[in-house]
């Protein structure tokens, strides 16, 4: 018989720690201390809270990888709650996750997702497949359905490098935990319909990684142009979008030194054509 004392990260290992079986951190939390789960705190019925919302995320594939970008604005009603929030994160060494929706819950869910992937890797001695990771995220979102129905929805987008196909893959989700694989490109959040228009017109089969970064910046610019909750590049303050690239070398956040000239070029081109680049008309 092992000890039955319950400790929350305290001095001794209670029976939950020593129980064999699960290699999921979320399942362990649900068993040991459910209050630590993002969805572990039931809200009183019929209330809704004013919470900070994150907005637009775009992702697009290129040959051998995928790029994901997020603007830097968080809003609460008509107020800009934060000018430089980060909404694109590494999920592990070969995938990334971007979040739209209730910022507090979403950031917490990303944190849990990161631990979930690393936990599995440490316990099993091997990484999950890209589909396995995407499914784990769906399970976490499904747990949040109650909160979503009270207005605290989390809508993430997941992208990873798949060594089996040698390319990037994109997954989107709905609040019920539905998981949908997207091809070529996708966007989520309040400015997503505007960003998606730009992605459709600018994405090409043979796009290079650098061009993909540029297209991501263009599409976020278009989202910020028409959606009040999406922030454009703030060159005065040096606030640029967060852009991550995942390929066979793993996750890489595009450094400011590399991103700054691309963003400046996009902004400069808009001085002449405020609506952005022109797509050719055929026929």
């Amino acid at each position: 018989m092992s000890t039955v004392r319950r400790s929350s990260g305290g001095s001794s290992l209670s029976s939950a720690f020593l129980q064999a079986g699960s290699s999921s951190f979320a399942e362990f939390l649900a068993m040991h201390d459910p209050s630590l789960l993002p969805a572990g705190r039931p809200l009183p019925p019929g209330t809704s809270v004013d919470a900070v919302h994150g907005t637009t995320i775009v992702a697009l594939t290129f040959a051998g990888g995928v790029a994901m970008a997020g603007d830097r604005r968080a809003t609460m009603g008509n107020v800009i709650a934060q000018k430089d929030i980060e909404k694109v994160f590494p999920a592990d060494e070969s995938s990334c996750v971007g979040i739209a929706g209730t910022a507090g819950l979403a950031v917490e869910m990303v944190k849990l997702f990161q631990v979930e992937l690393e936990h599995y890797e440490k316990i099993e001695g091997a990484s999950l497949s890209v589909d396995g990771k995407a499914n784990r995220l769906a399970t976490l979102i499904r747990g949040n359905l109650g909160m979503a129905m009270q207005g605290l929805a989390v809508v993430p987008m997941f992208a990873g490098y798949d060594p089996e196909t040698g390319g990037g893959r994109i997954f989107s989700y709905d609040v019920t935990g539905g998981r949908y694989e997207e091809h070529r490109h996708h966007s989520v959040g309040s400015g997503s319909m505007f960003a998606r228009g730009a992605l459709k017109k600018l994405w090409r089969e043979d796009i290079s990684p650098v061009e993909a970064i540029s297209v991501a910046v263009e599409s976020l610019y278009d989202a910020a142009d028409d959606d009040a909750a999406t922030g454009g590049p703030d060159l005065a303050r040096g606030i640029l979008p967060v852009i991550a690239v995942v390929d066979s070398d793993g996750y890489r956040r595009v450094p400011e030194s590399e991103l700054d000239p691309i963003v400046r070029a996009v902004v400069a081109a808009r001085q002449n054509r405020p609506d952005g680049p022109v797509a050719p008309i055929t026929g």
């Binding site: 064999a20 944190k111 631990v115």
Partner: peptide
């Protein structure tokens, strides 16, 4: 192995909550 898994759980729990 049982102790190792317990250690990973404890460490991840601490890192997650602090």
């Amino acid at each position: 192995e049982n102790l190792r898994v317990a250690g990973v759980r404890l460490a991840d729990l601490r890192g997650y909550s602090y």
